[in-house]
Design a protein around this nucleic acid. Sequence first.
DNA 1: ATTTTTTTATACCGATCGGTATATAATTCG
DNA 2: CGAATTATATACCGATCGGTATAAAAAAAT
Lengths: 199, 199
Amino acid sequence: MGRPREFDVDEALETAMELFWRKGYEGTSLTDLTEGMGITKPSLYGVFGNKEGLFLKALERYERTKMNFFHEALREPKARVVAEKILRGFADSQTAETGPSGCLGINGALACSEAAAEIQKCLIENRQRGERDLGSRFERAAKEGDLPAGHEPYDLARYIMTISQGTAIQAASGADRSALYRVIDMALQFWPETVVAQG
Amino acid sequence: MGRPREFDVDEALETAMELFWRKGYEGTSLTDLTEGMGITKPSLYGVFGNKEGLFLKALERYERTKMNFFHEALREPKARVVAEKILRGFADSQTAETGPSGCLGINGALACSEAAAEIQKCLIENRQRGERDLGSRFERAAKEGDLPAGHEPYDLARYIMTISQGTAIQAASGADRSALYRVIDMALQFWPETVVAQG
DNA sequence: ATTTTTTTATACCGATCGGTATATAATTCG
DNA sequence: CGAATTATATACCGATCGGTATAAAAAAAT
């Protein structure tokens, strides 16, 4: 009951996500947001709480709609395929023509004022969680003899995430997808497509 | 002649550099700067012009005092040593205990408002210049038969810079030096310490 | 000692920041 | 038809943003 909402919440959130993605948390003003989303401030605060709440919901949407490849990749049976799908998935997302370049999880709040410390911390934990999940997946692979010799699972995970974070900077600096793909090809050279089972 | 300056310009610039490094261009307010540098706003504007001018001078100082390893590395006779010195040099700088974590050239203005677009563009060009210089060095190496087979010089340069940009994010997220070194070890595996001369 | 030059300290500027109070418009319930 | 409820539009809030005008203070030049 009551007056019906005149805008689509999902559409508005999509716009907010793209703005934060492109300009970062602190670089995006409420004016940017309300003008982009086509709503007024009271509407924004009514639905999303405040700027911080809006960002967190945008990040949630980002994870759900743009980072879904990550958790799908973790379910691949071979560790090398996991790694490659993650690397190319990040590169694809970072260079998609429909959205901003780079990665919301990095662009959002890499270095910022104290006012954004909470968001910054949240994004750091977000990245660490991904790395930990990948490390855990590689731990399983190690037990299965599915990792190249001489590598610790969590070191491999950090390696993969470091490449992906690097390509995020490259994409934000104008690198195109094929350039990132060539980087990924080089990064995976050491990892043979078929690892000889151990024991 | 005239009243003598009561502060050391180099010292003040060092402080400004560290603040921009830690909080980014837009995340650092004039209050942060004047309080940190121990000077008043008119003094700051008298010596450095404005906030943008101060940032550019801080970036210049950063390149001169923190990135000197880069151009030194380019003078190494063997391309693999060039690559390794650059990678470890970045990792060292990004995890130095005396300064902020990460890289000023990335933390400064990765994603920002339109107000910082000029600084953002300047930092992008800064990164591209480094990559181009490295690519040019690898071009020489290619002629000398000093590159691993099957790799283009500028692809190799982008690869090295992508790793370093990735470690910058890792450092800004709390990774320590030894963790970054292990990433670098993995990144260089494909590149044999002695490349067999071609032809 | 006075003038000139430069730096300093204080107070202030308009603009924008994130956020909200108030009132009106649009709907459902009784 | 009211009455209740929710969303909208407008105008406003104190705080902070980058930047500056004004004048006093400290030195060198005459």
